[in-house]
Nucleic acid binder design. Structure first.
Lengths: 200, 200
DNA sequence: CCTGAAAGCTCTACAGC
DNA sequence: GCTGTAGAGCTTTCAGG
């Protein structure tokens, strides 16, 4: 496992890649004042950490005849919302999921009205649903950008910045970062309890 | 201007790139049964057409300490919603905008509560706002994928599939496709009227 | 943690069909 | 519209600081 801390140079590299991932590492290296091999290695590290999820292509689906999407808005009792969002994330007609503090879950779904209704009939079964609405999407745009207040990984347990003493945990196919061993222990306990709660 | 029609092979290439844009053109060529130069040329064409908007990197911002985003939900009188969505698209703290048939506009905004309130105070000024709500985003995920019902460009005027007789228009920095010259003429008239309406 | 050089691949003309 | 080839340029490994 590579080093866990991130620095300003990593942030600059990410910004350049978000803007245009077809840039060469040499061009990026020139801009950030390094050489190509170093940039390559830093990107590789961020990929392993999961900060960089994937290299991809943004497609303007609005130009295609295919476009047939729905916006689904669900208001749940707050505790329930996290698991719904997790389940939606794995459905592949679901492009975008947003969950808010107040237990709202929004999903941008590429499917016709009946398919969407069927999907959500299953997903909402047994949940405490306060409201539920499906509407046709006319237009949607995506504008990727890096928002760098403090550019650092935060500890899932205490929220503090994770530095080189930090640890990276991989549990049930998801990665979590903690700043130290005591946070690791606390997090593992908390996680086990959450799991029991979800299953019980 | 290149040919306007798209075929199944273009769709396959796009799918492979969406999944992983760091693949080499040779690998893609092998999978779709072509050679690297042809794939390169097809991708270049789709870029020029605007189907491929950009090569980029998806970053898991939830791991970063930076995360501080709001979901803004606005319900407008239906006619008004398009122009609000257009204005939001150009604000760079706005990551995602979705507009529905019923005049709802949702925006995923990377900024604190006061900044968001200030931004929308300006944007909503003078509009017919039926409801307006701001909530803190806890989690958001993006899952790019190509939904290929009929994979073809559709005419902005008549909705029919655009083939090699089609035309590509660039008006006010946005690209539009029409299937034939009569649709072009009708669209230009309609566009001019819309512009007058918006300004008047 | 970085550089510099070197080997191996990848991209993209271009000529030919 | 596609292929094959060939040169330029890119990535990545590795020795060295």
């Amino acid at each position: 496992m590579p080093t866990v801390a991130l620095d300003e140079t990593d942030a600059e590299i990410l910004e350049l890649l978000i803007e245009d991932a077809s840039r060469s590492y040499r061009e990026i290296a020139d801009r950030v004042g390094l050489t190509a091999p170093t940039v390559s290695e830093r990107v590789e590290r961020m990929r392993e950490l999961g900060i960089v999820e994937r290299f991809t292509v943004a497609v303007d689906q609005s130009m295609l005849a295919t476009q047939d999407a729905r916006l689904v808005e669900v208001q749940l009792a707050p505790g329930d919302a996290g698991t719904l969002a997790d389940e939606l994330r794995d459905v592949d007609v679901v492009e975008h999921v947003i969950r808010t503090e107040s237990g709202r879950v929004l999903a941008h779904v590429h499917a016709g009205e009946p398919e969407v209704r069927r999907l959500f009939a299953d997903l909402l079964e047994g949940r405490d649903v306060l409201s539920y609405d499906v509407g046709g999407v006319v237009e949607s745009s995506w504008n990727p950008d890096l928002r760098r207040g403090e550019f650092a990984i935060s500890c899932v347990e205490c929220g503090k910045e994770v530095d080189d003493d930090g640890l990276s945990l991989e549990i049930d196919d998801r990665r979590y970062f903690v700043c130290c061993e005591s946070c690791e222990e606390l997090f593992r306990e908390r996680y086990a309890e959450l799991q029991e709660g979800a299953e019980g």
